[in-house]
Design a protein around this nucleic acid. Structure first.
Lengths: 133, 133
DNA sequence: CTCTCTGCAAATTATTTGCATGATA
DNA sequence: TATCATGCAAATAATTTGCAGAGAG
């Protein structure tokens, strides 16, 4: 039987407090309040939480995996420039869902779509930079 | 000036011959015909080809990166059960593109959407297995 | 008291890098 | 012949595992 531990609760709460963190960011944050927790405990509990469906694991190109503690169905957008992950909610989520053909797959897991490109914020930055040339 | 090398051509061709391979699969395949090529040469040239846009890098959860040598715009579907990657073409590609709101992002890079779930093939298998119980 | 979980250190996997040598413009 | 690329081995980064002891049921 699997026990519910203090450490797992802390890991879960910390992932939810941060913005799509990787395992090391979670560890660093936890260290501030509980300096005795080990990195492998963070990894072990993250894996258990993902297995239980309490966290979502996001694979991003060329980086450590990120985690998401949000439980409401949504998708993700990864900005190639700032490497931030944005949640795709509501209208956009519904539109994408409607477009997914049942031919392709039997079942698309909620949450797990990852789009990739340049976010509005970074785009405006690059346009502004170009004007200065 | 970057030179065009024999090895880079071999790496490119080999990725195209295989079905969304990881770097090691590409290396193993190349070894059969060119046993003197080094693994780091495979990695180095894969990275150059990705940078040039000749290959696409796909990050999948809990595994080594996969590569795709197809240049026509398309998206991807990763089956959580068999861990195969399927290309999403034509009709489905157009429908997904139409659903992507400009609110979310300035520009979604072609090719880079990764859906995740259970493919038709694995779904039928699991239904058949359930009938036998 | 038993058995799971933890923290640490060592192991593993995927990928990158330093360097002496080989190949190409 | 000056550079750039290669192959090898060592280095690095992310993650997992083995194990002795702590803690919960």
């Amino acid at each position: 039987m699997r026990r519910k531990t203090i450490q797992r609760g802390i890991v879960h709460k910390t992932v939810q407090q941060l913005d799509h963190p990787n395992a090391d960011s979670v560890y660093q944050k936890i260290m501030q309040d509980y300096p005795d927790m080990g990195l492998s405990t963070v990894y072990r509990n993250i894996n258990i939480l993902v297995e239980e469906g309490a966290l979502l694991r996001l694979a991003v190109p060329g980086q450590a995996d990120r985690y998401d503690g949000q439980t409401k169905p949504h998708y993700h957008f990864f900005c190639d420039v700032c490497r931030r992950i944005y949640d795709i909610q509501n209208d956009d989520y519904d539109a994408l869902n409607a477009a997914i053909s049942q031919k392709t797959a039997h079942h698309i897991r909620a949450h797990t779509m990852l789009l990739e490109g340049v976010c509005q914020h970074c785009h405006e930055h690059s346009v502004a930079a170009a004007r200065e040339d």
